[in-house]
Design a protein around this nucleic acid. Structure first.
Length: 419
RNA sequence: GGAGAGGUGGCAGAGUGGUCGAAUGCGGCGGCCUCGAAAGCCGUUGUACCGCUUGUCGGUACCGGGGGUUCGAAUCCCUCCCUCUCCGCCA
């Protein structure tokens, strides 16, 4: 997803305009609502009178005429109101979330803050090969055939590659399960328009989604969408919070506008696999949960022994709906750059408002919006890049990290297969 | 794909034009009883918006979504969506 261009002054001005206009229109509409409501009250009164008069078998024509006239007025008022509401809604939906106070101000990715770094850059006493070269010589991926089947950005994993990829997903899910925090879910890979509006991908990011036109369904860009929408339009009880889910899904992204950027190999794909963590939390606990969620994601990297760092995104680099966001980046020794494998975000009530997810503090209180959070834990393609490059040997083979061996069933990928 | 049935409050389930935000039961909450609990009894119990005299206040809307008929719609008509049953077909 493209972040909101906070550095772009035109964008900021538009947002401000939408905020103010929405406020002004809202204030103005109150008078209109008051007017039509009192007309409706009058009509209800007349209807009751008509019912009574008719029961007595008396003539109610005059009353009916009066009621009909009021009805016309109401119809006009309601039509105006409907248009106004639509206008407000359109404006509100384009307003991004507000950053949390702990988020540094900044215009672009350059002003992000490195929060912590774990491990160190791997060194080699031979010339390391990049993941594409390794992938090809080991026969574990086939981009050409993926392109033939579907198009560029749709990779084929084969042999040890396919097994390794599947093993990673199982390793992620099992690791989360062992920690006992998350309930695993398996959810639909397509969602309806309401769902994708609920998590905030619509209306702003429609061009990044694959759509099934005949049914107006969308291929999910992340499991965040179906999982967060599980509780759409629900009032949760305080005792069940925080609700924590994790689930595997493939993710589909058109990546419109990012052609030519990171197109090599696994760096940017139209389809990839990911395990996502999603939380519904009480507002006063959401930031603590955010830290835990981020730690759950990095825990996996520590088990694997992959060098990573955690970045706190500045205000200008954050996504549309996030109030605070940590990116987890892993080191690619051959690309010689950091690769984002997870974004752990606290959306506060941004998604909860759109999706209508609330909870009741106690039975006397009105329902309040929950806070929603999510983060990858983790996505496979870029992790594969770091994994292949980090654990390669001088003979061109790749060693499997210890923790993965029970999932793969082999400990070495060689040119002839696996051992 | 063919035929039929249905979508009502947290759940179950009445209601076929006005007195229905909606009977009844279950659940939840409060109270009585009790050493305590169960049972029983009594009471209470949705959401959103608008207004002000901010109140156990007044008003409006909501019975799958949208539209229509009517003075008035949960109720009648149209349309869309969804669920269920049977038949067919296929993983």
């Amino acid at each position: 997803m493209k972040p909101l261009c906070a550095a772009d002054s035109k964008c900021v001005v538009q947002t401000m305009q939408n905020c103010w206009m929405a406020c002004l229109i809202l204030i103005a509409s109150a008078a209109l609502i008051e007017n039509t409501d009192s007309l409706k009250a009058k009509r209800n009164e007349l209807s009751a009178q008509i019912a009574e008069v008719s029961k007595r078998k008396e003539d109610a024509t005059a009353l009916k005429d009066q009621s009909r006239a009021i009805g016309d007025e109401i119809a006009h008022g309601d039509a105006d109101l409907k248009e106004i509401e639509k206008d407000i809604e359109t404006r509100l939906m384009l307003i991004p979330n507000l950053p949390h106070e702990s988020v540094p101000f900044g215009k672009s990715a350059e002003e992000n803050v490195v929060v912590r770094e774990w491990g160190k850059k791997p060194t080699f006493d031979f010339k390391p090969k990049d993941h594409l070269t390794l992938g090809k010589s080991l026969g574990i991926c086939d981009f050409e055939r993926g392109t033939k089947i579907a198009g560029s950005g749709f990779p084929v994993y084969r042999a040890a590659g396919a097994i390794l990829e599947r093993s990673l997903l199982n390793f992620f899910l099992e690791t989360h399960r062992e920690r006992g925090t998350y309930t695993e879910v398996s959810v639909p890979f397509v969602v309806n328009r309401e769902s994708i509006t609920g998590t905030g991908q619509l209306p702003k990011f429609e061009e990044d989604l694959y759509r099934c036109d005949t049914d107006d369904l969308f291929l999910i860009p992340t499991a965040e969408v179906p999982i967060t929408n599980m509780h759409r339009d629900e009032i949760l009880s305080e005792s069940e919070l925080p609700l924590c889910y994790c689930g595997y899904t493939p993710c589909f992204r058109r990546e419109a506008g990012s052609y030519g950027k990171d197109t090599r190999g696994f760096l940017r794909l139209h389809q990839f696999d990911k395990v996502e963590m999603v939380k519904f939390a009480k507002p006063d606990e959401s930031y603590a949960e955010h830290e835990k969620l981020t730690a759950d994601a990095t825990h996996i990297l520590e088990l694997l022994g992959i060098h990573y760092r955690v970045i706190l995104l500045c205000s200008g680099d954050m996504g549309f709906g996030a109030a605070k966001c940590y990116d987890i980046e892993i080191w690619s020794p051959c690309e010689e750059k950091w690769l984002e494998v997870s974004s752990c975000s606290n959306f506060e009530s941004f998604q909860a408002r759109r999706a209508g997810v609330r909870y009741r503090r106690s039975d006397n209180n009105k329902p309040e919006f929950v806070h929603t959070l999510n983060g990858s834990g983790l996505a496979t393609p870029r992790l594969l890049v770091a994994l292949l490059e980090t654990f390669q040997n001088d003979d061109g083979t790749v060693s499997i990290p210890d923790v993965l061996k029970k999932y793969t069933g082999f400990s070495l990928i060689t040119q002839n297969g696996m051992k």
